[in-house]
């Protein structure tokens, strides 16, 4: 399969602050590519460079075969971009927004008409063309924004946190849409804070403080980066329990997941009784459950970020 995006030592500095630090990776044609990282990790900065609206300080990338450094305008012809900040005009109607974005991509006449129908269909806005965009619910707005971002049928679309601040059902529907685009052959490059969404991606990159720290499919990430077994403990007095577990020699890492504790264990670990006995030394702790679990992406990322900190 061909590469849709090839990134080579891409770096962006603002003054002496390095926002993106020499990252390299490939994105294959037609895949859904998840680009993950905490707040301020450098996701938006990277996307802007890949879209040709921010020039890299060092390194380069080929997007749809064109260098973002030398031919940013050719790059633009082949991509769609849904920015993190809301990109539709709230004071325009649905149809006016579609006409506008179609217009700046040079669509007119029957092509515009055809694409307009398509956007209305995917956003569920048929018959609501004259509604003011401000009056639309968030989920619908996001679908409309996605529709306008790909109105010109680009080869690649960049979505920067497209589902932030939207209810779970709308998010689910939005991901169905992303899958549809992908099966039409469009490469989808998407950032998100929701790790359960990352499971929908064919490939994932994790960056932290501008540096790439992990890459692979969700399955690869779980097996390649997390060697230790993982246990989940459900108990009362979580904070005290955590304090006790942290200092045990059979425990590698601890973290809190909702009301539960996750620990990764090392060679010194023999059975779950070990856990129970150390916790029960404190009378205030009541254990309801201890069991081995399959790691989630979140476990992997917390592990990686903790390791990165050290």
């Amino acid at each position: 399969m061909m590469n849709s995006i090839t990134i080579n030592n891409l770096t962006k500095r603002f003054g002496n602050f390095t926002s993106v630090d020499s990252i390299s990776f490939d994105v294959k044609e037609g895949e859904i590519f998840g680009f993950l990282g905490a707040n301020g990790a450098g996701k938006t900065t990277t996307i802007k460079m890949l879209c040709g609206i921010l020039s890299p300080t060092e390194g380069d990338a080929l997007v749809a075969g064109f260098s973002i450094k030398k031919e940013p305008n050719k790059v633009k012809l082949n991509i769609g971009y849904m920015s993190q900040r809301f990109s539709l005009y709230n004071d325009l109607t649905v149809e006016e927004n579609i006409n506008f974005f179609g217009g700046i991509y040079g669509l007119n006449g029957s092509r515009l008409l055809e694409r307009k129908q398509w956007v209305l269909k995917i956003a569920n806005l048929n018959g609501k063309e004259n509604l003011l965009t401000a009056s639309l619910p968030g989920g619908i707005k996001q679908r409309l924004a996605l529709g306008t971002a790909v109105i010109h049928r680009p080869k690649i679309v960049f979505l920067d946190e497209p589902t932030s601040g939207v209810d779970p059902i709308s998010r689910r529907n939005f991901w169905d849409l992303i899958h549809n685009l992908s099966s039409d052959g469009i490469t989808v490059f998407v950032t998100t804070h929701y790790l359960e969404e990352a499971e929908f991606c064919n490939n994932i990159i994790l960056i932290n403080a501008g540096k790439l720290i992990a890459e692979g499919s969700s399955k690869e990430l779980k097996t390649n980066y997390l060697k230790n077994d993982l246990y989940e403990i459900e108990c009362s007095n979580v904070v005290d329990a955590l304090e006790i577990l942290e200092v045990q020699n059979f425990v590698e890492e601890t973290s809190i997941f909702g009301n539960n504790i996750h620990i990764s264990v090392n060679r010194n670990f023999s059975s779950t009784q070990q856990i129970e006995s150390v916790l029960l030394s404190n009378k205030d702790i009541k254990i309801s459950r201890v069991n081995k679990i399959v790691p989630t992406l979140e476990d992997v990322f917390i592990h990686l970020l903790e390791r990165d900190k050290k």
Binding site: I53, R85, S87
Partner: peptide, 13 residues
């Protein structure tokens, strides 16, 4: 200020 300019900049205009 609103950030809508990015959407315009990324088009072929």
């Amino acid at each position: 200020e609103k950030g809508t300019i990015e959407q315009i900049n990324v088009s072929s205009i």
